[in-house]
């Protein structure tokens, strides 16, 4: 089992070295009762496979979609999720917290 975020970064390296395209998502800021602490990682490959978590499962779907786009076009972007957000109807945090997630491609 990959318990810690550091193990997940080891996996990201292993995926990259195996020739897979990889993006890394990181929780960079939280407000209120966010489910995962700042520094938590989600690692995504070009096929949408992922490891780790940035929330309790509430927003992972959206992060994976954005990550696959980042893998295509490169660069990095910051995503924001929360109940007050306009995206709440499709991906919100039921716990009432808000989180910011930084998504970048592993080059």
């Amino acid at each position: 089992m990959l318990a810690s975020d550091d193990d997940i970064l080891l996996q990201a390296q292993a995926w990259k070295e195996a020739g897979r395209s990889v993006a890394i998502a990181t929780v960079i800021e939280t407000w209120g009762s966010a489910p995962r602490p700042v520094g938590s990682h989600l690692v995504i490959d070009g096929d949408g496979l992922f490891l780790g978590s940035v929330s309790g499962g509430c927003v992972e779907g959206d992060v994976v979609t954005e990550a696959m786009d980042v893998i295509e076009v490169g660069g990095s972007r910051t995503l924001e999720f929360g109940v007050a957000d306009e995206t709440a109807w499709r991906a919100g945090l039921s716990c009432g917290g808000r989180i910011k997630v930084y998504v970048e491609r592993l080059d």
Partner: peptide
């Protein structure tokens, strides 16, 4: 992130 940076992060942690 550069793959070399990630490798360095992981090596330092190990």
């Amino acid at each position: 992130m550069r793959a070399s940076d990630l490798a360095l992060l992981n090596a330092e942690r190990a």
